[in-house]
Design a protein around this nucleic acid. Structure first.
Lengths: 330, 330
DNA sequence: CTGAAAGCGCTTACAG
DNA sequence: CTGAAAGCGCTTACAG
């Protein structure tokens, strides 16, 4: 039922090679021939099939973005960067959601084996170095975002630095009992930020109090939810000794935490992480990461590697930035 | 460099047909043969190429979701539904972002022409009936979500009903001067909600005041941003006659509007739209749409139509639901 | 249970 | 500027 290159060729009285050339706009085709073919193709609703082109040319002209959750502003910003870079290229971007519950590595490997795209942009998937190493064998362009590795191009955030900066700021305000309001404690970004928190405490000679390392009970999305923030805040308010301030590892969690403070009539200085678009409007002091810029960068890495498989591996680590608003100034 | 079915066949001492059968788990292959082939494939990192399979079998085992922006909770919920339905099917879901600035119809048509997938789930793209009609010719399974049509299966919201319900509630509270805080006034969902607003006013014999139809100046994302909400609220506060209440067409805009109220020390009852996950935590009264359920439904429609192209067209319209929290109760 | 062979819809040297 | 023909990596009747 759908038209093929043969239908167009027959209709135009040319060979399929000529039709093919028109759509690859590469080789020279007489203008009048080209126009005739284009007209017929348009009338018949024809365009070369992606799969057949991919098979024949070994070039898919597509890249695939692999992501865990796409709920958030974080992801949207990255996507914006990617799309802006891709705007002038003739490359389709397709997005595949990786289910964190079903074995990240297995899914990623499967996609690569099946050769869906010319290159893969892997975002926030946090595979182990060993797993990444295994992907090397497929010899396929891969660019990591929000993840670090010596095996592939990568663009990542200095999470430790973020935790350090926020905590240092709070210490500078004279706070001593500072909560680390955590997501799932084993989550990679969480662990790194925790390191920075510890480092800041150490520098100020404030001993670490394990009872101030707190998370809620709801653990979907690694605990990065309003609900978890709310639960955690309730625990904080029930502590025997009151706390001075809070470093919270995500804005979304902070929304829950602020609600709990409100519900119980408390106000505790808080800095969170992400700088979502709402954060400005609810007055959250927070750590900002240049997501858009990094989306651009990681995409450029990938394009470059597709064209040029042997360039040296790039590895950018960005420092986040503290934005002070109301929530920390009490 | 990448392995092919020939490599596996040679290594295993069988024909490529047998290898193929193993991966299609369809026909009978002797257990010992199957295991040998699977082992070799695993060692060599082989899996059939998606594109070659697609070409040869005319079945892609994939569906594609076409969406405008994926920033929001709205989309995430739909995706969750889609993935849950797809979980047991052997079908890959791939997502393609449609750029609203670059001609929605052209992009959609292009994708379909190229035959990327076995079926397409088109979300919130709001093409005209004429455009949808044109897509018919490609004779391909399509399911619409958040859009209505007689040409394809569709699952949509009764936006007019939503606007009506919210406005009626506010009128019931005795409010008379009710603002319609709008996104881009021409945006489809916006227009429909506006109809419901007008209908409610009419029923209560409250004359419509054009000066209460307000939006901000920032028009990215059709004005569905915090910024636009903030700007609009500033205009509202500058009105000569004060207003009684506000019906705001999105939670995100409401976040901006509430900030403006705060900044100027005002409090005006407000109902918004979407029920984002944060809304519960910032006390927004809002209109909830059963996104998850609809994601499931639209996906089932599509699966069904892929298997069964001639079933009768389904057309579900869901009524939204009003959730009352603090923001309307002042 | 397995193989030989045609075919899926394209691209791309190679010739002219 | 254009065509004939081989080939991309699979699937799938058809035979056995």
């Amino acid at each position: 039922m759908p038209k093929t290159i043969y239908d167009i060729a027959k209709e135009a009285g040319v060979s399929i090679a000529t039709v093919s050339r028109v759509f690859n706009s590469s080789n020279s085709v007489k203008d009048s021939t080209r126009e005739k073919i284009l007209k017929i193709a348009d009338d018949l609703g024809y365009h070369p099939q992606a799969y057949a082109q991919g098979l024949a040319s070994k070039k898919k002209n597509s890249m695939m973005m692999l992501v865990p959750v796409m709920s958030n502003y974080f992801f949207t910003e990255i996507l914006r960067g990617t799309q802006d870079v891709l705007a002038d290229e003739n490359i389709e971007l397709t997005i595949l959601n990786i289910n964190q519950e079903k074995g990240v590595f297995r899914q990623v490997e499967q996609v690569i084996k099946r050769q869906w795209a010319d290159g893969y942009l892997i975002v926030s998937l946090h595979m182990t170095q060993q797993e990444l190493q295994k992907l090397k064998r497929y010899n396929v362009p891969i660019s990591l975002l929000d993840d670090h590795s010596t095996h592939f191009d990568s663009v990542s955030f200095n999470n430790e630095q973020g935790g350090y900066t926020a905590t240092t700021y709070l210490l500078g305000k004279g706070h001593r009992r500072i909560v680390f309001l955590s997501g799932r404690k084993e989550a990679i970004p969480n662990k790194e930020r925790f390191k920075g928190y510890l480092k800041a405490l150490r520098e100020s000679k404030v001993p670490f109090d394990e009872s101030l390392h707190i998370t809620g009970d709801s653990m979907d999305r690694d605990g990065f939810t309003e609900k978890n923030g709310y639960e955690a805040m309730c625990k904080i308010l029930n502590l025997d000794k009151p706390v001075d301030a809070i470093f919270c590892t995500s804005d979304i969690k902070a929304v829950g935490a602020l609600k709990a403070m409100n519900d119980f009539g408390k106000r505790i200085p808080l800095i969170s992480y992400d700088n979502l678009s709402i954060s400005e409007y609810i007055g959250l002091s927070t750590i900002f990461q240049p997501m858009y810029k990094m989306g651009c960068q990681a995409t450029r890495h990938l394009l470059n590697r597709i064209d040029n498989p042997d360039v040296i591996i790039c590895d950018h680590i960005h420092n986040p930035e503290l934005i002070i608003r109301d929530s920390s100034e009490i």
